[in-house]
Design a protein around this nucleic acid. Structure first.
Length: 415
RNA sequence: GUGGGCGUAGCUCAAUUGGCAGAGCACUGGACUGUGGCUCCAGUGGUUGUGGGUUCAAUCCCCAUCGCCCACCCCA
């Protein structure tokens, strides 16, 4: 046998039992997010290409070379969303949600698309679960969002992760910092890697988290953003750290952390795990106080994060084996006459919420063998004898106990 | 887009200097006319990723191509 079709590169299937783990993670998210006042929002996978250009920034690789874009039949430029925030912000502005009482809090989940070379923890179609909060500038909301993310990860079963934090300033102080960076790196430009030479022009902040050795050597004495923050940003970040301390949420400051998306202001954070390989971020986010107004809405401070489902499931799976339960009851039907009774009995049990499997064909022996391999709890046998007598034989496969019960009473055994 | 590693049964892997493609597990059935697990037996399953080349002969050597994995880049 040879498969005639295979899934596209970087767009893998997720099969049971892993799908059970996904459900567990999503359920944990829904529960926790709900407690924090977040409601689910569903936005389209398809958006105008322009939306991402304006939010993520045209200089970022995501927009420059990783978007799945095409022209539709009416000659509009369409993209498959590479991330979730832009769509949610678009919906917030489009539906005038700023007129609802602040803060407005949403969470979302679903597939995102980036045309990248796949590797560990990176796919072309990947799933994110994220949250966005609009209408509060107070650092308390930053703290609340981060505490919520931690609670979610804990509840999902993730262990051994760490939180890194930074503030990258606002439109008052960041331009000056960029200037200081350029002044610092300018004399060393020839030593930097080609990528960083490009970054020097496009986004000097990104030189700070380059992994090339000679670049990290050069930046040893580079100016720190923390020393360039304006008074408001400094206060905001200080208050946030105090709140996290009060919550005993452990974090490490990473003054070199820069997020890849242009829209971030002030707080940025990243949750990483050592078990992931090079793509070690399991969730990341930050504040984006300017994006709503850039999309035509009123000036509205906002913040959010997104977590990668594949990355979560990868490392939670490696820590805990996720079992899949077999049917509680397996109904062996022997002979063609038994099918109706088997289906009827199965339906009654299923209506009671039991997981039931009917063995439609094969000898009784082979059906029992199948029931055992599925991990069934009980078997009910319906064949010629049982139909005649009107009472069904049953057996508990776990302890070997067996008996016989009137057809109409059988469902009482398991409820 | 760039680099490295790997492609043999559903899965994990063998196959001597190039010499008839195998095992374990899984699956299906039987031994045991209607009672699972244990045991034994049998069966299904392969164009050795694909296409060329070298050779009397290629899973093995060469070239190309596709796929997967890891890393760069980027990022969840």
């Amino acid at each position: 046998m040879k498969a005639r079709f295979t899934a596209l590169k970087g767009a893998p299937d997720v099969l049971p039992p892993e799908t059970h783990l996904w459900s567990k993670i999503e359920n944990a998210a829904c529960e926790v997010f709900c407690a924090y006042g977040y409601d689910e929002i569903k936005t389209p996978i398809l958006e105008p290409a322009e939306l991402f250009l304006r939010s993520i920034g045209s200089s970022s690789d995501i927009v420059a070379k990783e978007m799945y874009s095409f022209t539709d039949k009416a000659d509009r430029s369409i993209s498959l969303r590479p991330e979730g925030t832009a769509g949610v912000v678009r919906a917030y502005v489009e539906h005038n949600l700023s007129l609802r009482p602040a803060p407005q809090k949403f969470f979302y989940r679903g597939p995102m698309f980036r045309y990248e070379r796949p590797q560990k923890g990176r796919q072309r179609q990947f799933y994110q679960i994220g949250a966005e909060c609009f209408g509060t500038a107070h650092p308390g909301m930053d703290a609340e969002l981060i505490v919520m993310l931690m609670a979610f990860l804990e509840k999902a079963g993730l262990r051994g992760f760490s939180l890194e934090l930074n503030s990258i300033g606002c439109r008052q102080c960041r331009p000056a910092f960029k200037q200081r960076l350029k002044e610092f790196f300018g004399p060393h430009l020839d030593v930097l890697c080609p990528d960083c030479q490009r970054r020097y022009e496009q986004n000097p902040l990104r030189i700070l988290d380059c992994k090339v050795e000679r670049c990290s050597a050069v930046r040893a004495g580079a100016p720190l953003i923390s020393e360039s923050l304006c008074e408001d940003c400094r206060m905001h970040f200080g208050t946030l750290l105090g709140l996290l301390d009060a919550m005993e949420t452990p974090y490490t400051l990473n003054p070199q952390m820069v997020r890849g998306l242009d829209y971030y202001t002030r707080t940025v954070f990243e949750v990483t795990s050592g078990q992931l390989g090079a793509q070690n971020a399991v969730a990341a986010g930050g504040r984006y106080d300017l994006l709503v107004s850039e999309f035509g809405g009123p000036e509205t401070p906002a913040l959010g994060f997104a977590a990668g489902m594949e990355r979560l499931s990868d490392i939670i799976l490696s820590a805990t084996a996720s079992g899949q339960a077999g049917p509680e009851v397996f109904i062996a039907s022997v002979g063609g006459e038994a099918a109706a009774a088997a289906l009827k009995t199965a339906s009654a049990l299923r209506a009671g919420g039991k997981r039931v499997e009917v063995g439609w064909e094969g000898s009784l022996k082979s059906q029992l063998r199948r029931a055992d391999k599925m991990g069934a709890g009980h078997v009910v046998i319906i064949g010629g004898d049982e139909l005649k007598s009107g009472s069904f034989k049953w057996k508990n496969l776990k302890n070997g106990e067996s008996g016989e019960t009137a057809a109409g009473e059988i469902f009482k055994l398991f409820i």
